[in-house]
Design a protein around this nucleic acid. Structure first.
Lengths: 348, 348
DNA sequence: TTGAAAGCGGTACCAC
DNA sequence: GTGGTACCGCTTTCAA
């Protein structure tokens, strides 16, 4: 059943015995309208609790004032912080935000695009699914002149606006931090080499070590990017009596697990081993000591991506595609630098 | 600048030299239209990549096919899982979802309501801000006959549809679990007593102990619901040599911290102390051992709340308000029951 | 200063 | 089987 209808401009007009056009003008404080009429209109509008119909407005102006987000997974701290940055920025510009989870499915991704086009959103922010490797649906969308900005996971080798973090620089910085602490045997718990972020982080790590003329051996990089693998690798290193004095982990879950496992074996962090993570989700505050990590700043990514999109929406000019690189930040905490917790030391 | 216009029914009509009405009918496979015409229309529609204008449709049908969510905070695992449940359920019913963060501000909450009413959403799901204690804006909204369902944090003493979890039962279950493990000195790290959830969880805990005729003393309930407080309380208990053999914490952050602190002091979990948390966010898998906790099932809350809302939207009948109580689930893990980790035991 | 009318895109009733 | 027309709510040009 239809919802009961809301008050319209005509209702106000009828009530006052004037025309709809006059009401429309009065409501937007048009100079032509007499103060008395304006006053009267406003009163009735208040009385009826009038709210303009955005659908009618959008249809008329050809501007929905809505932007869409297509995201692989809402339940993920990074993505939800991006969403937060997006909604905040969009709101400030007077835009509503429609959110469409693709659940890592290309089919759903296409379906979402269709649905957003139907709604005549003025622009779309997309983080593509892991399985998306054909970009035809994006190309079609862009051919329609719908502004699109890709964030975090942009399509590779595809001309488009994008907003990404600098994984390479972040990894370099994290490693540099360990070097600056005087650590000599620094290892990397790395992600898969065929995924861009895994690759970039690995490169940043390697380049930093090279820069400092530190050796890279078979025992420098481990294929280790999950809770389970971290448990396994730490056990192996310990059994081989081959524990390094610093570990840079490709993500926080691995880093937190690493800290916990080291604790369990009685190997002190950070005194004996310094550990750096990557992401700065909620997790990083939950190891003990808390994790030094790279803050990916999802909020800022959302903000930057939205600003880029809004710019495209406002100008619709075919300037060359841009890539916004959002800086990361090294957050130094107890897993690399001993905190002031003398109470704990003497408690031990 | 306006976006370039998308193909319309008129464009198709013009191209084929037929009327818009015919095109409209052809596109929805109306029986009156000849197969040839349908075929031709479909071809041109494909060629122009026609997508119906949902704004025009919504205006015509008085149905936007959009629902709105007003939520205090997107960046929160529980809320983002609720959102996930909502979008999923809404999508299946052909609805889009607009998301409006209130950032715990009543002002913004009101603003969001205005904006959603303007968009003519067909219903709204709300989790109210912590500071909302005047419900006039909700009442006004409901007077407009916009269906509203409150979830997780409903307004107190206010007639409305709601979807909540059974905090009392969950706390009772968690405590019962500790009792069943044979623990004798069970304590509660409690949240504030003036907040419903803090109160309900506390009641569940207390009633369970009473039921089992276990004593409740000054050392049974602690005002302790954060990382910092947990650190403090554990230290105090240890200094007083008053460590209990089981702890039920009001939330996961407190529980995880508790486990970590106990680990630090060399007090084994779960052998010496069993710990139960509440929420089952990402955190609960990151203590070592992993946390036994109450799964709040945000996804299911989102789903149930949305179903209730959709029902209201479809019927718009003034049946009595309903309260959907979503069951929680005790997730038993290593912090209360020793896991099979013989490798660790001998490693110790 | 105000009103009438057309149009945004689509649907549906009424003719033919 | 197809076309004309009015209408959903609002804005805006043109006339009065």
């Amino acid at each position: 059943m239809k919802p009961f209808r809301q008050a319209t401009i005509k209702d106000i007009a009828r009530e006052l015995g004037i025309s709809a056009s006059t009401v429309s003008r009065a409501l937007k404080d048009h100079p032509d309208i007499s103060p008395e009429t304006k006053e009267a209109v406003r009163n009735v509008a208040d009385k009826l609790d009038y709210q303009p119909n955005a659908l009618a407005l959008g249809l008329h102006n050809q501007r929905s004032k809505i932007i869409g987000i297509i995201i692989p997974e809402i339940q993920h701290h990074f993505f939800s912080s991006v969403i937060s940055g997006i909604t905040e920025t969009a709101r400030n510009a007077g835009f509503n935000v429609i959110i469409c989870p693709s659940d890592e499915s290309v089919e759903r991704e296409k379906e979402n695009i269709r649905s957003l086009v139907s709604l005549r959103v003025e622009g779309i922010l997309i983080s593509i699914t892991k399985e998306t490797n054909d970009y035809a649906h994006f190309q079609k969308l862009m051919n329609r002149n719908v502004p699109v900005v890709f964030f975090d996971r942009p399509p590779e080798g595809f001309a488009c606006d994008r907003c990404i973090i600098d994984d390479y620089a972040a990894a370099y910085t994290a490693t540099e931090h360990l070097v600056s602490l005087g650590r000599k045997k620094i290892v990397h718990f790395a992600g898969p080499n065929n995924v861009r972020i895994g690759k970039d982080r690995r490169r940043g790590f390697v380049d930093c070590l090279k820069r400092h003329k530190m050796p890279i051996t078979d025992d420098t990089i481990f294929d280790c990017d999950s809770h389970d693998k971290a448990v396994e690798v730490i056990k192996k290193l310990r059994d081989e009596d081959n524990i390094p004095d610093a570990i840079f982990a490709v993500n926080d879950i691995t880093a937190v697990t690493t800290v916990n496992e080291l604790n369990k074996y009685g190997i002190r962090v950070p005194e004996k081993v310094a550990v750096v993570g990557f992401t700065n989700g909620l997790l990083s505050e939950l190891s003990s000591p808390m994790l030094t990590t790279i803050d990916q700043n999802g909020q800022l990514i959302g903000e930057k991506a939205t600003k880029l999109l809004l710019e495209r929406i406002e100008t619709h000019v075919l300037t060359p595609y841009q890539t916004a690189v959002v800086p990361t930040k090294l957050v130094v905490r107890g897993s690399t630098v001993a905190e002031d917790n003398s109470d704990l030391v003497d408690a031990k």
